[in-house]
Design a binder for these strands. Structure first.
Length: 263
DNA sequence: ATGGTTGGTTACCAA
């Protein structure tokens, strides 16, 4: 089974990217974030025409929005309201092979890394804290589960182009890293991307639109993640961040990350 | 220290 996570930055502006990606890789499941479309505006017909008959969407006007596109039936659909907000940042479903998929769009957190003056940063930290407590309280890590999404935090030194220069930049501050690591460890999630790429090696999934030449500057960050529960660890086959997709026409600023799992 | 780009919405906000 191939599963992809991709912050698409407007699903309506990126249908050509999804088509190109599926032509090349034919994934079973695609988890999208930042669809930026309320459900009535989601291009569901076009997505179904690509073979994703089992597509579940959870969107709102203008902001956020997540979707799970699947070639296989999706059961047991849920979307939790994190930090009590109805802001369309999560959708979960169970696949016919029994794997439960959780698709997340964690708040970006604004520019100022100080929760006392920046409500968006405060919200982000609360959100990640709730991720840490919710899974142990509601789920068993002995079940096969995958958590993917734009978590908007790059935890390792080699998840950013300059650890030193990003220590005070939202996405790589020590408090965010501590909280993300805590959320991962609290449930025993396995970092499936770093399972294949050693911590000593650079690994990015996002490159800013603002660079003159994003590929040449290569000032990336690993904001997108794939976590699995221990039963799936020995079933991991391969992982690929499809960096090429960042260079396609009218790209998202995020590249898709794909995992292959034996099933 | 600053400015750079994109999308959704319709005068800026969020990323």
């Amino acid at each position: 089974m191939r599963l992809v996570t991709w912050n698409i930055n407007s699903v309506r502006q990126r249908l050509h990217l999804i088509q190109e990606f599926t032509d090349l890789y034919n994934p079973d499941v695609i988890c999208l974030q930042e669809t930026k479309a309320q459900n009535t505006d989601f291009p569901i017909k076009e997505i179904r025409a690509m073979g994703y008959d089992h597509t579940e969407i959870h969107g709102m006007k203008s902001y956020n929005g997540v979707a799970i596109l699947s070639r296989h039936k999706l059961d047991n659909l849920h979307s939790h309201e994190w930090v009590g907000k109805k802001d369309c940042r999560h959708l979960s479903a169970t696949l016919p092979n029994g794997i439960e998929v959780h698709n997340f769009y964690v708040p970006a957190g604004g520019d100022i890394p100080d929760r006392t003056v920046n409500d968006k940063f405060d919200h982000k930290l609360d959100f990640v804290d709730e991720m840490a407590s919710w899974f142990p309280a509601n789920k068993k890590n002995s079940d096969p589960m995958i958590l993917v999404g734009d978590l908007n935090i790059a935890p390792l030194e080699n998840d950013v182009w300059s650890h030193k220069q990003l220590l005070k930049i939202v996405s790589h501050t020590p408090i965010e890293v501590e909280k993300l690591n805590n959320a991962q460890q609290a449930f025993g999630w396995v970092d499936a991307m770093r399972h294949f790429v050693p911590d000593e090696e650079r690994l990015y999934s996002w490159w800013s639109y603002r660079a003159r030449d994003w590929r040449k500057a290569n000032k990336g960050r690993r904001l997108d993640h794939i976590w699995v529960t221990p039963p799936l660890k020995e079933k991991l086959v391969s992982m690929d961040v499809v960096k090429d997709a960042r260079g396609w026409e009218k790209p998202s600023d995020h590249a898709p990350a794909m995992i292959e799992i034996k099933d």
